[in-house]
Amino acid sequence: MDDKILIPISFFLMIFGIVYLIYSTRNRERLALIEKGVDASIFFNTNQKNVPAWKVFVINTAFLLIGIGVGLFIALFLTTYTKMNPDVVYPATIITMSGIGLLVGFNKAKDLDK
């Protein structure tokens, strides 16, 4: 068996294991609560207003792309006007600004609930 095929197989097995663990644990928790006589309506919170998932996805994606663009601009600025190594500056600034963009997107998505 080729070694390159083991990586995708192990990746999908890992994803399957995580999903299975989440659903089986959730099921066991719910069964334990139902056995204790707790009303099943606690699983379905109807008085909470929910923001559609696509809006949160669009906001987070937009801020991620903005962060990548700003990271590229700052990296270009740093490599042009300083003697920093471009092999280090580009990934560092792109990853940092992407993280900041995701943080801002998370905070904006939280504000959608209000």
Rank of each mutant, 00 (worst) to 15 (best):
E35P: 09
V88N: 11
A32S: 14
P52G: 08
T80P: 00
I34E: 12
L31N: 13
P91G: 07
K55F: 07
F73R: 00
F44D: 10
P86R: 10
K55S: 09
Y23E: 11
T96I: 12
D39P: 07
G101A: 02
N60Q: 15
M1D: 05
P91S: 08
K83T: 15
L102I: 13
K4W: 08
G99V: 09
K49R: 07
T80E: 07
I59G: 07
G99W: 05
D87E: 10
K4P: 00
L112N: 07
L33F: 09
T25H: 10
L21N: 09
L64A: 13
A109L: 04
V38I: 15
S24T: 15
I66L: 15
F44N: 12
Y20A: 12
V38K: 05
M97Q: 02
M1N: 06
V51G: 05
Q48M: 09
M97A: 10
I94G: 02
F11N: 00
I94Q: 00
I74D: 01
G37I: 10
G17I: 06
N50T: 14
V38C: 06
D111G: 06
N27P: 01
N85T: 11
N107V: 13
I9P: 06
G71Q: 03
S10R: 03
I22K: 00
T46V: 12
G101N: 02
R30V: 09
P52S: 13
N45C: 04
E35N: 14
L103Y: 13
L6M: 11
L21M: 09
V51Q: 02
K49C: 01
V58S: 14
L6Y: 12
T93N: 08
I5W: 13
L6S: 11
V104D: 01
Y81V: 11
T79I: 15
T80N: 07
N85G: 08
T93L: 11
G17W: 04
N47G: 15
M84K: 10
F77S: 10
L65W: 06
I18K: 00
M14D: 06
F77E: 12
Y90M: 04
L103H: 06
E35H: 13
F63L: 12
S41F: 04
F73D: 03
I68K: 02
F77D: 10
M84V: 12
D39N: 15
E35V: 10
A92N: 08
N47C: 01
P52V: 05
L65E: 00
A109S: 15
F106Y: 13
F12C: 08
I15H: 00
V88E: 03
N60H: 07
I18A: 08
Y20E: 03
F106R: 08
N107Q: 12
S10T: 12
L64Q: 03
G105L: 03
V58D: 05
A53M: 10
I94H: 01
L33C: 05
W54R: 13
L72W: 02
V51K: 03
T79H: 05
P52E: 09
V58G: 02
V70I: 15
D39E: 08
A40L: 04
E35T: 13
I59H: 02
F16P: 00
F106C: 05
N60K: 13
T79E: 03
T46I: 09
G99L: 08
N50R: 14
N50P: 01
N27Q: 06
Y90R: 04
G71L: 03
L65V: 14
D3I: 13
V89A: 03
F77Y: 14
N47H: 14
